[in-house]
Nucleic acid binder design. Structure first.
Lengths: 207, 207
DNA sequence: CTGAGCACTGAATCCGGATTCAAAGCTTTG
DNA sequence: CAAAGCTTTGAATCCGGATTCAGTGCTCAG
């Protein structure tokens, strides 16, 4: 079952690699990086521990790839939401916060893993990039908003970091694995609250 | 040199325990929790690895104690600053942010370890408490400020978390071990920026 | 002076994974 | 059908610390 003609072998190899990535991703989404041991990943594909190493340069690389692709996707979605959200700084920042917040609250465990779970240096480096992507989006929105005085004068870099921090910290209580799933009302209350907090902080004119 | 009369033995034991705590603390302040291995801690006291275990229930407990005492002290200092800072919400919040920020930027490595360094579950639990202490202080200030309309209506718990997040995230860039020491001007610029951000967010009336 | 009682010592051991690699399974080619 | 060339396998090995504990040193009461 595992071996086809050589013509198909390449495809097969890609499938297998992909399967490992998906397995790892599923494990992370379920139990965080901690749960994605090489053995667990292999198991989930009916593969052997050793074979993992013929597709990846070790666990860290594999998980980094999982992180990267998940992060890339998240950032893309948020960026799309921002782009499709009208031209005022308020609309764009609102889209950023709402989209980010709502998605985090839906894939709670995954979001927690990506944003907060203690992990080794390799993941930590990916995480830094990931957070920076959001900060960069925010910074751009703020800079533009500053240009035509939609916002109160301020350092856009600092403000964007602070926004990201405010959003993360307000969410983390709900994302922690041991905390209970928030009800729909709670979710909107939190996100609305954060949005308003950030709008005030940035001095968004008009509502 | 290590053994006195029994009358003094108790004191001696306390000294030794204390020495280990101090050694651990120094190591954390220098290289983070990661650097505070049992061997390193013991070394620094001319003690043996084994002896550590006659004073503590294992590394985690020892480090948790280090964390707790450092955290307790930090929180005390901040609380004192807040208390001694006049009665307006603005003054108090300003004191909270300034004190916390300035202290973090001075003991950068220690602050980073306590606020951000990835670590095991025991430290993580302590950290949660630590952060909550600050959030509680902030929440109290905000609640009071809300009562006599010094602040815009908002959920004080959420707002306080968001403030803590904004402050942390704005600082973390400067706290990371690999980032360079910020100049005095940079320090005040960051802290001033954060304070203003938070004041706006909370809707502090008057400046 | 002696041995009972503590505290100290650090080499040996344990632990939880990650990583390796010789052996074994398929497939294709000649 | 046999050999060559791949992938796969998973038990053995490695790794970085934490933890243990039999042996040793010191003090003091008797």
């Amino acid at each position: 079952m595992a071996y086809r003609q050589t013509a198909l072998t390449r495809k097969n190899a890609e499938d297998r690699r992909d399967g490992l990535l998906r397995a790892a991703r599923a494990l992370v989404a379920t139990g965080g990086f901690k749960a994605a041991t090489v053995a667990a990943i292999a198991d989930r594909c009916q593969a052997s521990v050793g074979s993992v190493y013929s597709y990846f340069d070790g666990r860290d690389r594999l998980l980094a790839e999982v992180f990267r692709s998940a992060a890339g996707h998240e950032v893309d979605v948020v960026r799309a939401a921002v782009t499709g959200a009208g031209h005022s700084a308020a609309e764009r920042l609102g889209a950023l916060i709402d989209t980010f917040g709502a998605r985090a609250l839906h894939g709670r465990r995954m979001a927690w893993a990506m944003l907060f779970e203690p992990a080794g240096p390799v993941i930590e480096a990916e995480r830094l990039d990931y957070r920076r992507s959001y900060t960069a989006i925010g910074e751009q929105i703020i800079s533009l908003g500053l240009a035509d005085r939609q916002l109160v004068p301020q350092d856009p870099g600092l403000a964007s970091s602070a926004v990201m921090g405010a959003v993360s910290e307000a969410l983390v209580g709900w994302l922690r694995p041991e905390s209970p799933e928030p009800s729909a009302e709670e979710q909107t209350r939190v996100i609305d609250g954060i949005r308003e907090f950030c709008f005030r902080a940035l001095g968004v004119r008009a509502a």
